[in-house]
């Protein structure tokens, strides 16, 4: 290939030497591929990017990349990322994790990160199960899923609607994708990174170990197929999201609202920064 076409970092250049310990067949491999493709597409230098995570299978992803990484506390990835972005607004701050980490343990932080609208991209790999702890129901698990001994009759609880929640809570970029389509995920992640505000990328990412039936998602996912999407109309986005069955993919909602940033300058002192975070 010509020198021009080969110039600049390739997706593989963003991967570390650490071999993922995800199960063979895990959807998260597709997200890792997509993330590295997106970074290569944007030609972002690795030292310009920080990838923050919490706990869980999906949250292992920083170790598999050659970026700044922080594998933090369960459900608190968005808090760490918020602090990092406040202190280092020049960095491209990405957050990644799973549905349990993001919507249960970190559910409150998710809502307020959407509301605060900092210029952060949050990628959630949703497999509707706690995989690392061997297969318990998560907030996005269907109420009638009975394969876990902890919930032998199913949870009986209505599933979270992450994309709809993000719109309602104030996120300014909301998309859904499927890890089996890594090029599409890459495109959405690249666009999310470029969006000036809080961007939420909800990736359906099968867990074939504890949810083998999710292998069928590759046949079930479909584009929203609507000419009126993406929309800046939150009411329309909510209407679509609450009626689509959860397996439609694409950019749903994009709205321009100034991204929040602390008024205090870096170096102003901890007290001044903390004052900006008063809720």
């Amino acid at each position: 290939m010509s020198e021009q076409a080969l110039s600049g970092p390739r997706a593989k250049d963003y991967k570390s030497e650490i071999k993922p310990i995800w199960c063979p067949g895990c959807g998260h491999f597709g997200v890792l591929t997509a993330l590295t493709k997106a970074l290569a597409a944007l030609q972002l230098a690795p030292e310009q990017v920080a990838l923050i995570s919490g706990i869980g299978c999906a949250s292992r992803i920083p170790a598999y990349t050659d970026l700044f990484g922080f594998h933090g506390v369960h459900g608190r990835a968005l808090c760490v990322a918020t602090g990092l972005k406040a202190a280092r607004p020049d960095l491209c701050v990405l957050v990644a994790g799973g549905d349990g980490d993001g919507f249960s343990i970190g559910g409150n932080h998710f809502l307020h990160a959407c509301r605060r609208n900092m210029d952060i991209t949050y990628i959630v790999m949703d497999n509707e199960v706690y995989g690392m702890t061997k297969g318990q129901a998560s907030p996005t698990t269907a109420p009638d899923w009975v394969a876990s001994k902890l919930t032998p009759g199913g949870t009986g609880l209505r599933s979270f609607q992450p994309a709809a929640l993000a719109v309602a809570a104030g996120a300014t970029f909301v998309a859904r994708s499927f890890s089996g389509r890594s090029n599409e995920v890459a495109q959405i992640i690249a666009r999310a990174i470029q969006h000036p505000g809080f961007s939420f990328v909800h990736v359906l990412s099968p867990c074939l170990t504890y949810r083998p039936e999710q292998k069928e998602w590759k046949h079930a996912v479909t584009d929203f197929g609507r000419d009126d999407l993406p929309t800046a109309n939150a009411a329309l986005a909510m209407q679509v999201l609450l009626n689509d069955g959860g397996l439609s993919t694409g950019l749903i909602y994009e709205f321009e609202r100034p991204a929040w940033r602390p008024r205090a300058q870096t170096g102003a002192g901890l007290a001044a920064v903390e004052e900006e975070f008063a809720v």
Partner: peptide, 29 residues
């Protein structure tokens, strides 16, 4: 030759990924 630099989503594949890229879901330990 001067080859174009295409973004991952600009390739004209028939499916979501290149035709010789194994599906991530088709493996088992």
């Amino acid at each position: 030759r001067h080859l174009p630099r295409l973004q991952p989503w600009e390739f004209k594949w028939l499916d979501a990924e290149g035709p010789e890229t194994s599906n991530v879901f088709d493996v088992h330990y």
